[in-house]
Design a protein around this nucleic acid. Structure first.
Lengths: 125, 125, 125, 125
DNA sequence: GTGGTCTAGACCACT
DNA sequence: GTGGTCTAGACCACA
């Protein structure tokens, strides 16, 4: 599992860990029922506090991406391909809508937004 | 000048004020050399502390959107139509790039992103 | 009389006016017993408040560079060539000493200071 | 770390703290990645408000001399010997140039300036 | 009147 | 514990 965090960011570390794992789950890089590294292990690897990792895992459990057996560890939840796709699209729709709302309030032209998007997407095809 | 803030947001109040004014400047709703409301006045209007407004003005001055004559007040900087457009596009390019980077790392399809964008933009035309 | 002020500077305007006039007196651009522009006139020319000019004149009178006949105006004081030279050297000695003290506390090398000085002076010979 | 401030000075306290620390960094008295005293600690030591120290640290972070990990503290930035020397010389060149410009506008002779400088420098060798 | 600075508290999120 | 933010006062220099 590759988790990259930047402690200097203004974004909380536990959120960064959370996002990293969520991404890997939605990506299918982490398969269902996989055992995640223990809180202590990950805390040690990332050189952060145990509490920080614990918080990240708790949030992930709360939002249903992982589940835990107390005393055993945290596991990746089962989700159908369909469920995952729905979640992905929901996230995309939400974030992009806010983004565009903001840029429009700035007065950015639709065509400019579209061309920036296309240019960026072309890097991935 | 219309400034709307939500003190309960997790986004700092001074950033909200900053963003509001920056948006109005980029929008040309606030024209160059306009005298902004005094720190005290705005603090009173928004029902926040003087220091909170000062910090917002300070940041805006730091990034060049406004300038001050101590003892007189804060004024909107002169910026050419061109400069403003460049700044707008820069902001758009930056935020959209990060957005797409993130969505791509999630594995969202390009066509899905594009269709969401188009759907959202159609609300503004 | 040429007075240039920058209202945006963090240096008070009345000090700027003061320094400008002091410089012209030490320069002999303003000769002894010359009648300075009236407070109202100068305030109007510089587009600043009457009070600001008044304060500058008061300070100059206080330090002996000008004198006033109430109801008539402000005049440049009489000073011998010798007196003027002594004042100039005193100012130079004071400011340069502080400057060097500061640069030395930063750990700047003496040779660097000297070469910068020489380079700058060469522009004036 | 030795920080000396004079609260009665017309120079803002937060600037004094800023200058003190900047000097120690350029001096290499504070080595890179050193943990600075916490805002609260320093505020207590200097007997000033927390906010005053915070402002000083904020400015230093803004200009790149220090960096922060929220929740952990402020650290001295990494800068090569070279970078530091460049900054030092830049500061020296800037301040000395302004100084000489001013003295020249007063009509001080080059030789006088040079002899004052040499006299002062001799105190440090 | 304005901005510039400062105090002495406070609450919060994060480590 | 740390920094991040905020309040509700205050005094000062300046215009």
């Amino acid at each position: 599992m590759d988790i990259v965090i930047s402690p200097s960011s203004d974004y909380p570390i536990y959120r960064q860990i959370e996002e990293n794992i969520k991404t890997e789950i939605l990506n299918r890089k982490l398969e269902k029922n996989t055992l995640l590294p223990s809180i202590r292990q990950l805390a040690c690897d990332l050189n952060v506090s145990v509490i920080t990792v614990k918080k990240a895992y708790e949030e992930l459990e709360h939002s249903g991406f992982i589940y835990s057996f107390p005393g055993k560890g945290f596991y990746v939840s089962e989700m159908s391909e369909n469920q995952i796709n729905i979640i992905k699209k929901k996230i995309a729709a939400n974030t992009l809508q806010k983004q565009i709302e903001y840029l429009k309030s700035l007065g950015v032209e639709s065509e400019d937004i579209l061309s920036i998007i296309k240019e960026n997407l072309s890097c991935y095809d």
